[in-house]
Write a protein that binds this DNA or RNA. Structure first.
Length: 256
DNA sequence: ATGGTTGCTTAGCAA
């Protein structure tokens, strides 16, 4: 079972690229972030023609998450349902073959100490609470997304320059660790300790050609799933060429 | 400190 997660930075701008990538790689499940459109404008028909049903949680202009599956989607659910009023579409869950998939788009946070930064930390705490409330660590869970946090310095091209700044601050790393501590494993780190593996490169200042990137997109899974995880990697090639997303897809393969 | 790039929406925000 091949799983992928990809911040596409607008599904309408990236439609052809994503469909072509699906045709090339044929993942069983693809989690998307930053679809940036209301559900009625998501290219559902093209995805169906490509063999994928979609569970959508979008909004106008910003955010937006989705889960695409070649296998039947049994249940879907959106948001945290924690009683807090939410106007940002950042979380969707879907069950496929008894596995609970979650596609999460963690807030960027803009700048350490800002209002958006505090919102980010609170949102990450809500994600941990959501796991506590809805699931058991012995369930089959795959938590995918753009976490907007580089977990360690080896996930950052210039760790000295980035030290303490947004995407790398200690509080963000701590909030991510509390999510992991619920009972998750970083599938990529399960298979390699290599530094310099990135999933996002800034569009500006030749970030990609200079490989000035960060690893902020992750596939986490619970214990029953990590024992089945045969491989995990980042498809850096998908960041190449004309009109790419600023993120590359992350993949994980699980034995059936 | 600022600006650089892209997308959505059309001047400015978010990333």
């Amino acid at each position: 079972m091949l799983i992928a997660t990809w911040n596409v930075n607008s599904i309408r701008a990236r439609k052809d690229r994503v469909l072509s990538w699906l045709d090339d790689h044929k993942p069983d499940v693809l989690c998307l972030q930053e679809t940036k459109t209301v559900d009625q404008n998501f290219p559902v028909q093209e995805f169906l023609q490509a063999g994928y049903t979609v569970a959508l949680h979008g909004q106008k202009t910003y955010n937006g998450v989705a889960i695409c599956s070649r296998r039947p989607i049994q249940t879907t659910d959106t948001g945290f349902d924690d009683g807090i009023t939410e106007d940002q579409a950042r979380l969707i869950s879907a069950t496929v073959d008894g596995i609970h998939f979650i596609s999460a788009y963690v807030p960027n946070g803009q700048e350490v100490g800002s209002e958006k930064y505090e919102f980010k930390l609170a949102w990450m705490a809500r994600l941990r609470s959501f796991l506590d409330r809805r699931f058991d660590p012995q369930d089959a869970i795959v938590l995918c997304g753009d976490f907007n946090v580089a977990p360690e310095d080896r996930d950052v091209y210039d760790p000295i320059g980035w030290r303490g700044s947004i995407l790398c601050s200690e509080a963000e790393r701590g909030a991510l660790q509390r999510i992991v501590d619920w009972g998750l494993v970083d599938t990529l780190r399960h298979h390699t300790q290599e530094a310099g593996l990135y999933s996002w490169w800034d569009y500006r200042q030749l970030g990609f050609p200079k490989n000035r990137g960060l690893r902020i997109d992750h596939i986490y899974c619970s214990a029953p799933m990590i024992s089945r995880c045969a491989e995990s990697r980042i498809d850096r090639d998908a960041r190449k060429g004309k009109q790419p997303s600023d993120h590359a897809p992350v993949l994980a393969t699980f034995n059936d």
